[in-house]
């Protein structure tokens, strides 16, 4: 099993997987690193074809699900910390622009949180790094077309939510 290749393929989908469940950016990355390290360490027990994307995805899916099960045990029904501190350096920007940017990002993330979990997951998994639908599908056990369909529905619903918020006084 080639670790750099495995990381390259599943880094984004894995981070998205954990982000969709409420992990903050640092935690989502750490969990993804844990999952990939664990998968690599346990490669002797991997029974599938090392080059088979779907087999690798299924292998990682089990690890990721179990990690999320214990990692989010303390997070039931807690509101998400909106993750802007890391990407918005307000020191050299116009405060009004920063506030507007933060506001726009907040709206999107809050709207994503309103989506059903399966839709939320594909949005994160795809958009965090622009990961391919095949990699996303391999991790969650769906075909490319199924992921594509789910993305379309998720986007449509997200758009509807954002528009409904924007027309509100």
């Amino acid at each position: 099993m080639d670790l750099p290749r495995l990381v390259h393929r599943f880094r984004g989908p894995l981070i998205g997987f954990f982000a969709a469940q409420g992990a903050d950016p640092r935690e989502a990355r750490e969990l993804a690193q844990d999952a990939l390290a664990e998968a690599f360490l346990a490669r002797d027990r991997f029974r599938g074809d090392p080059d088979d994307l779907n087999a690798q995805g299924a292998w990682l899916r089990g690890i990721a699900k179990n990690l999320s099960r214990v990692s989010f045990r303390d997070r039931a029904k807690q509101p998400r910390e909106l993750p802007f501190d890391e990407v918005v350096d307000s020191s050299d920007r116009d405060p009004a622009a920063v506030a507007l940017m933060t506001e726009r990002r907040s709206r999107v993330l809050l709207a994503i949180d309103e989506l059903r979990p399966a839709w939320r997951a594909v949005l994160y998994m795809h958009y965090i790094e622009g990961s391919g639908l095949a990699e996303v599908g391999a991790l969650i056990g769906l075909s490319d077309r199924a992921v594509e369909g789910r993305l379309r529905r998720a986007r449509a619903e997200l758009k509807r939510i954002l528009e409904s918020w924007e027309v509100q006084p």
């Binding site: 670790l3 750099p4 990381v7 390259h8 880094r11 984004g12 981070i15 998205g16 982000a19 950016p25 989502a28 990355r29 993804a32 690193q33 990939l36 390290a37 690599f40 993750p83 802007f84 890391e86 990407v87 726009r104 990002r105 999107v108 993330l109 994503i112 949005l123 994160y124 958009y127 965090i128 790094e129 622009g130 986007r155 997200l158």
Partner: peptide, 22 residues
């Protein structure tokens, strides 16, 4: 799509740092 990617940008790691961590 751009808005979503922008909002989730904080989650995106530096690929080299990420691989090194793993």
């Amino acid at each position: 799509g751009v808005r979503i990617a922008d909002a989730t940008e904080a989650y995106a790691p530096d690929p080299d740092d990420f691989l090194r961590e793993v």
